[in-house]
């Protein structure tokens, strides 16, 4: 098997805060293969964005500090590149779409200017050539009348259009990996459907890999091949989307899935069935300045046993592909022989 496009191993990042050192990521490992869509899911504060920003080395240091780990992309360890080499990766090889299309664009420049800027940073094009490229790029992301509207300012565009511009900028230099941080969260339902369809199409057309950061498991289900579930800076479970969502092995994944209001034509509640309440996850994230020994989910876990509060839990491979970090799931899998730790 060929090496994955992006390979993250044992990534640990801490932040210095006034209250002490906060362990934001603690031993995160996963791969993104060529042409695949991998989704990072979890609640806010669990380390999704910290992972994405670490890949691009965009975390300000200090307060952020790389404790240990390796991020191998196209054969190079990104964590040991010089800032100058890194600039050749950012934008050129790895594109990034930020969460909020309302604030990610500069309001005082036209979208054309910002798109051309991105193109000319990495390629030796004349202004005219770059402009043609920019128009072609906008057309590719389904921006209507790109030649006429390339000189619009961000405030003249709707949220969906701005998100298309951001995707066009991220794709300007045909990156092999696109990182999208909550690309549809700020958008309306029908526009969200359009953007998801676009990402799906681009991935097929361009053979690009996608690292998607999302908290909406519905979005994840509709586009991702694999899912990585993060909790308090630790990978709790990962695996192929279909099996992970249909048969989650970790109590946290199960709790997350249960707390989503059911949908579908039979999900509505009549007056009679009201009063049945939605399952919730009680409690809050552990204090990452002094995480508890053992499992980080212990305080909120419905199935917690004594061992969970004392022993470090290894990430154990599952027979159906994927891996889970839970003693109870480990017992369930014990019949299967392959039980390697950490590196799948």
């Amino acid at each position: 098997m060929t090496a994955p496009l992006l390979r993250i191993r044992d990534l640990a990042v801490s932040f210095a805060t006034y209250g002490g050192v906060l362990q934001a990521l603690d031993g995160v490992s996963f791969d993104v293969d060529k042409g695949r869509v991998v989704a990072l899911v979890g609640e806010s504060g669990c380390g999704k964005s910290a992972t994405a920003l670490s890949i691009l080395r965009l975390l300000a240091s200090p307060p952020a500090r790389l404790v240990r780990g390796e991020i191998r992309f196209e054969g190079r360890d990104l964590l040991h590149l010089s800032e100058r080499e890194m600039r050749g990766v950012r934008g050129a090889r790895i594109g990034m779409v930020f969460q909020d299309p309302m604030t990610a664009l500069n309001p005082v420049y036209t979208v054309g200017f910002q798109l051309i800027e991105a193109i000319r940073l990495h390629r030796k094009f004349t202004r005219k050539e770059a402009r043609e490229q920019a128009i072609a790029g906008l057309a590719k992301v389904g921006f209507p009348e790109p030649a006429a509207r390339i000189d619009s300012y961000p405030h003249e565009l709707s949220g969906g259009m701005r998100q298309r511009v951001l995707i066009a900028i991220a794709l300007a230099c045909s990156p092999t990996l696109l990182i999208a941080d909550e690309p549809t969260t700020a958008l309306d339902a029908t526009i969200q459907a359009q953007i998801l369809e676009l990402l799906q199409k681009l991935r097929v057309d361009l053979g690009m890999s996608l690292l998607l950061i999302a908290h909406d498991l519905g979005v994840v289900a509709s586009i991702a091949d694999e899912v990585v579930v993060l909790y308090a800076g630790v990978v709790m479970e990962r695996g192929p989307t279909a099996s992970l969502l249909s048969a989650p092995a970790h109590p946290y994944t199960r709790a997350l899935l249960r707390s989503i209001p059911p949908s579908g034509p039979t999900a509505f509640r009549t007056r009679e069935t009201k009063g049945r309440s939605l399952p919730t996850i009680e409690g809050t994230l552990p204090d990452l300045r002094s995480p508890p020994p053992g499992c980080r989910f212990q305080a909120r876990c419905p199935d917690v046993v004594d061992r969970c509060t004392t022993d470090a839990v290894p990430l154990t491979s599952r027979s159906g592909g994927g891996a889970v970090r839970c003693f109870l799931a480990e017992v369930a899998e014990a019949a299967e022989p392959a039980a390697t730790t950490d590196v799948a």
Partner: peptide, 17 residues
């Protein structure tokens, strides 16, 4: 139709233009 489903059933989503 735009509610992303948790169980991909292969049904084509009705995407408004």
């Amino acid at each position: 139709s735009a509610i992303p489903s948790l169980t991909p059933d292969g049904k084509k989503r009705l995407v408004l233009q």
